[in-house]
C-alpha cells in the first residue's frame, strides 16, 4: 500500500470514528431530552397517532366519510381535456383534436360517470345504515376495562412484592409488568437484575415514571402483547388488570399471553379477593367495572388448562392473593 493510500485510509478511519463519537453524543442528548420531560416518548407516539388520523383508507383514520368525499370528487369524468400548451399553436391543435374526439369520448365518459355516481350513491346509503347501527350499538356498549387498583394492595411495600420479585429473579429474558403505574415494580425488578419494563394505559403515571429513563409505555396490556413477538417474554406480572375484565377480555389476554411467553416463563397475577373487591376500601371503579375477580382456585384451574403449573398465596388480610404460575411446555394454542 502506498503512503498516500495509507494516509487516505487513516483519514477515513479517523472520520468514521469522529462521526461515531458525534452520533453517540446525539444519542445521549436524546436520552437527556426524554428524561428531562422536554420531549417524552409519549409525545412522539402522539405525533404518530395524529398523522395516522390523516391517513385515508387506512382503517385507522380518515373514516368512511372522508373516503366517500374522495369517491364523490372522482365520480365525474371530465371529457373536456385541458388544451394549454407551451408550444405556439399547440393549444389550437389540441383544441381541434378535442373537438374531433369529443362526441366519442363524451359518450364513453358519460356512461362511466353514471356508473361512478351509482356506486357513490350506494356507498352513501351504506354509510347511513352503518352510522345508524353504530348509534344503536353505542347505547348497549360495554366500556373496555380499565385498571382497578386498591391503593393498599399495590406499591413497593405491598406484601406480595417480595414473592413476585423472587419468582422472576431468575428470568432469562424480558419481563413485563402491567399495569406498571409509575414503574415502582419495574425499578424493583431491575434492581434485582431482571430486564423489566412496563405498560399502563394511564398517561399520568407513565409520564412521571419515564422521567428517570425507566422503560414504560402508555398502552393497555392486550394491545401491547399483540405487538410482541411470539415466545419473547420470560415473565409477566399482572396487577390491577385482570379483576375488572369481562370473561371475553380475560380470554383474549390469556390467549395472547400464552403465545408471547417463552417455555418455562413465569406468570404472576395479583388479584383482589371477592371480599376485598366488595369491601369499603375497594376503589369506586370496582363498582363500575364490567367484570369481577375470580376465586383463587379458578385461576389454578384456568391456568392449568393452558399448560401452567400454578400456585396461590393468600394475602394476610384475606382481601387479596397472588398467583404464581410457570409455563410448562407449549400451551395448547401455540
Amino acid at each position: 500500500m502506498s503512503l498516500a493510500a495509507e494516509e487516505g485510509g487513516a483519514t477515513e478511519a479517523a472520520d468514521r470514528a469522529y462521526l461515531a463519537q458525534v452520533m453517540a453524543e446525539i444519542d445521549a442528548e436524546v436520552a437527556r431530552k426524554r428524561a428531562s420531560g422536554d420531549l417524552p416518548a409519549r409525545l412522539e407516539r402522539e405525533l404518530d397517532e395524529l398523522f395516522l388520523e390523516h391517513s385515508p383508507l387506512s382503517g385507522r383514520g380518515g373514516g368512511l366519510g372522508e373516503s366517500l368525499r374522495m369517491v364523490d370528487a372522482a365520480a365525474f369524468i371530465d371529457p373536456v381535456v385541458p388544451i394549454g400548451s407551451n408550444k405556439s399553436g399547440g393549444a389550437l391543435v389540441k383544441k381541434g383534436l378535442r373537438t374531433l374526439n369529443l362526441w366519442y369520448i363524451g359518450y364513453v365518459t358519460h356512461q362511466v360517470s353514471q356508473f361512478a355516481a351509482a356506486v357513490s350513491r350506494s356507498l352513501h346509503l351504506l354509510d347511513d345504515r352503518v352510522g345508524e347501527l353504530g348509534r344503536q350499538l353505542d347505547a348497549q356498549q360495554v366500556a373496555p376495562s380499565s385498571v382497578v387498583e386498591a391503593a393498599w394492595a399495590v406499591g413497593p411495600d405491598a406484601w406480595w412484592v417480595d414473592g413476585a420479585v423472587r419468582a422472576l429473579a431468575a428470568a432469562r429474558g424480558r419481563v413485563l409488568h402491567a399495569a406498571s403505574g409509575d414503574g415502582w415494580l419495574v425499578r424493583r425488578l431491575i434492581a434485582a437484575g431482571v430486564d423489566a419494563y412496563g405498560v399502563d394505559p394511564r398517561p399520568g403515571p407513565v409520564d412521571r415514571g419515564e422521567l428517570d429513563g425507566t422503560d414504560l409505555r402508555e398502552e393497555g396490556a392486550i394491545e401491547h402483547l399483540r405487538a410482541v413477538e411470539p415466545a419473547a417474554l420470560a415473565g409477566v406480572v399482572l396487577s390491577g388488570v385482570v379483576d375488572p375484565m369481562t370473561h371475553g377480555e380475560r380470554d383474549q389476554l390469556l390467549g395472547v399471553l400464552c403465545d408471547r411467553l417463552a417455555p418455562d416463563a413465569t406468570l404472576v397475577v395479583h388479584s383482589l379477593s371477592l371480599a376485598g373487591w366488595a369491601s369499603a376500601e375497594a376503589p369506586p371503579e370496582a363498582d363500575l367495572a364490567s367484570g369481577r375477580p375470580l376465586r383463587p382456585g379458578t385461576w389454578v384451574h384456568l391456568l392449568g388448562s393452558l399448560g401452567f403449573e400454578a400456585s396461590v398465596t393468600e394475602g394476610p388480610s384475606g382481601a387479596d392473593y397472588l398467583v404464581t404460575a410457570v409455563l410448562r411446555g407449549a400451551p395448547p394454542n401455540r
Binding site: M23, V30, E44
Partner: peptide
C-alpha cells in the same frame, strides 16, 4: 460518509 446517518426516524433523534 459525508453526512450524519440515522438508524431511526424518531423525531427526537432527528431533531438532535
Amino acid at each position: 460518509g459525508a453526512g450524519l446517518l440515522l438508524g431511526r426516524a424518531e423525531p427526537a433523534l432527528v431533531a438532535a
